[in-house]
Design a protein around this nucleic acid. Structure first.
Lengths: 253, 253
DNA sequence: CACTACAGTGAACGCCGTTCACAGTCAAAC
DNA sequence: GTTTGACTGTGAACGGCGTTCACTGTAGTG
């Protein structure tokens, strides 16, 4: 009776109505169990509200329970644990990304539009990117997003494997970017004018024999230039893709 | 008496010997306060040991204190709080990156070598990348790393601002990559053959009208291909940089 | 009407980071 | 050589966290 537990995620069935499916599959959440005051949906909605109001760190089971007028343990009737709550919250956020693409645009324009939409949504929910980075939700909205990116890349003439790799690269760029978002410690530091000036002074005062380049152009690195960094970074990636696999090339190896 | 607290990092002076310098400046840690059993250095070393043995999540002040044969509160004589401990640990890790570069290599080869070294060190300390991503240590070793990258990029003929942006892009790629490292949930899932097969089946079974591309080439996205993803991603970025600012171009605008 | 499935309760367990009055000890000052 | 003072480590506590579990009451089913 040793049933094959598949690696990593364990004990994922019980509060879930989904039987033996892995934790990271999020069921369509139909009209299951809405007989009582609490619903999985309501739990997730209020979790999102807490994050929106006080950031992702403020999302504790206890705070969430209090907000729902309920005792902490009650949440565990609707959510397996905090990790699954994170998964659900994530898919809720990704639902806000508009994945429709205008087919008359260049594939580069398509990717750019998608990327900016995703970035906007992620930065609208401070701290959320941190959850995404170590997780592939595989919920419906996450899948829709991947589909949109892959469709554009594939339509650009990239062979399947390259399209997959390109998606990983672009997706990683966006996530990594949103991750130290405007609310991160780094950006706070650099945004504050006084601190930034202090930082530049610090850089200029470094021993020039050990850090010649930093002394010379360090002020170009730590700048409040999120938009520029995001855009030119994305452009560089796309440009690299374009020149490596020129458009409308046939899909031969 | 309202003294100007500058944003984000607060109250950073007391256990530090550094007077009014900001938290994220890490002093050379000379022979300060080694009269007793505990040293800041010893604290950091054992913290690193805990991370090496049990991962970054296992690093708690209490566990660290126990390991040092000391009561938890004692740590606060040598470290301001857990965040500063993280900063110190980070710089300790970055010290392991060899930042010397062979000047006879192409700038692309130089960057590639540096990138692979950084990735290796980060993946050797599971979970560390997660600390780095929301933090710019500005410790000596972090600076040395930035110096190395910037020197190569600058030597390639990139104008200052573009070099800074390129560094951010490359650094972000490496960090983002190490972040969902081999120990992350994602990779565990995909590494397990049975789970991966299950995942591919899941992808193939998706409704083809809503996810045509995913069904067709989804198996190319979630693959155990970390090396390939890292390398071709980096290549794409470097290629993009190369074709955007061709080598040995003069630095005019 | 009896039964049962189950949502929510209340209390506890064992973690966590951090604070603080206090004790012991060593080095400098007299 | 004694006093003084600075400072490291102690012990105990505070408030918070995620999670578990025996229980209660109610709502729907037979």
């Amino acid at each position: 009776m040793v049933q094959p537990r598949q690696g990593g995620t364990e004990g994922a069935e019980s509060a879930d109505g989904a039987g033996s499916r892995p934790l990271w599959f999020i069921p369509p959440a139909g009209q299951e169990a809405q007989r009582r005051v609490l619903t999985r949906e309501r739990v997730v909605v209020e979790a999102l509200a807490i994050i929106a109001e006080h950031g992702v760190d403020a999302l504790s089971m206890r705070a969430l329970a209090t907000r729902l007028g309920v005792v902490p343990g009650a949440l565990y009737r609707h959510v397996l644990n905090k990790e699954q709550l994170h998964d659900l919250v994530l898919d809720g956020v990704l639902a806000e990304v508009d994945t429709r693409i205008e087919k008359r645009l260049t594939w580069i324009e398509q990717i750019t539009v998608l990327a900016h939409r995703l970035r906007a949504v992620l930065e609208a929910h401070p701290g959320i990117a941190g959850l995404l980075k170590t997780r592939d939700p595989l919920g419906p909205h996450s899948l829709a997003l991947a589909e949109a990116f892959l469709a554009s890349l594939s339509g650009a003439g990239l062979p399947p494997r390259q399209a997959g790799l390109a998606y990983s690269l672009i997706y990683g760029h966006i996530l990594g970017f949103a991750l130290d978002g405007p609310s991160s410690v780094n950006e706070q530091r650099v945004r504050d004018t006084a601190t930034r000036a202090e930082l530049h002074t610090f850089l200029r005062a470094l021993p020039p024999d050990r850090f010649p380049t930093l002394v010379a152009l360090g002020e170009h690195v730590w700048v409040d230039n999120r938009d520029e960094r995001f855009t030119t970074g994305l452009d560089t990636i796309l440009h690299g893709l374009e020149t490596t696999w020129p458009p409308t090339g046939d899909a031969a190896a």
